[in-house]
């Protein structure tokens, strides 16, 4: 049975801007693709690049990283650090044979629900065009730091 490919995107949002933008999109009933699942961090600066690699290695087809606009980070300038990590990460992904287009950094203020919704839908379409990732999970995952122990326990 072949089903139409529905990409799964993990989105990292910061507590102060983009998570609130997502809230606002909801309150305003702005529609976007259901393929994204969000994780709330306090700040984009918390984003450890291995989170992104783990997401891709664990079945996500794309990852969206979001934060406050430059100059508007709640913790002054941690989003610049996120940006630096993002650019390094993109290069690393290319070297690993993963299309860098699967990972995207988006700035969204708490007022930009519509913008965030638009960016999500856009990324979903871009990743859909790239197709499923099917990363050789075993090899890569082994190279990454150990998974949380509790998750190793099957039913």
């Amino acid at each position: 049975m072949t089903e139409a490919f529905e990409p799964v995107i993990i989105g990292f949002t910061c507590n102060w801007c983009s998570y609130r933008a997502a809230d606002l999109a909801g309150t305003a009933r702005v529609k976007y693709a259901p393929n994204v699942r969000l994780i709330r961090l306090m700040c984009s600066g918390r984003l450890d690049p291995t989170f992104v690699l783990k997401a891709l290695a664990s079945g996500a087809d794309g990852v969206m990283i979001t934060g406050c606009h430059p100059g508007e980070c709640h913790y002054l300038e941690q989003n610049y650090k996120a940006m630096r990590r993002y650019h390094l990460l993109k290069r690393m992904l290319a070297q690993m044979g993963v299309e860098p287009g699967r990972v995207k950094l988006v700035w969204a203020s708490a007022a930009e629900g519509v913008r965030l919704a638009g960016e999500i839908t856009k990324l979903v379409e871009e990743v859909r065009a790239l197709g499923p990732l099917n990363w050789p999970t075993a090899g890569v995952a082994a190279a990454l730091p150990a998974k949380p122990a509790a998750l190793e326990v099957p039913a």
Binding site: F51, P148, L151
Partner: peptide, 25 residues
Amino acid sequence: CGTCVAACPAGAISGTGFSDEQVLS
């Protein structure tokens, strides 16, 4: 903010309420 948690190469820093385990799980 958690920036140091993400940056520490030794994994020595953990963030209460936003630990690696919490995010990854």
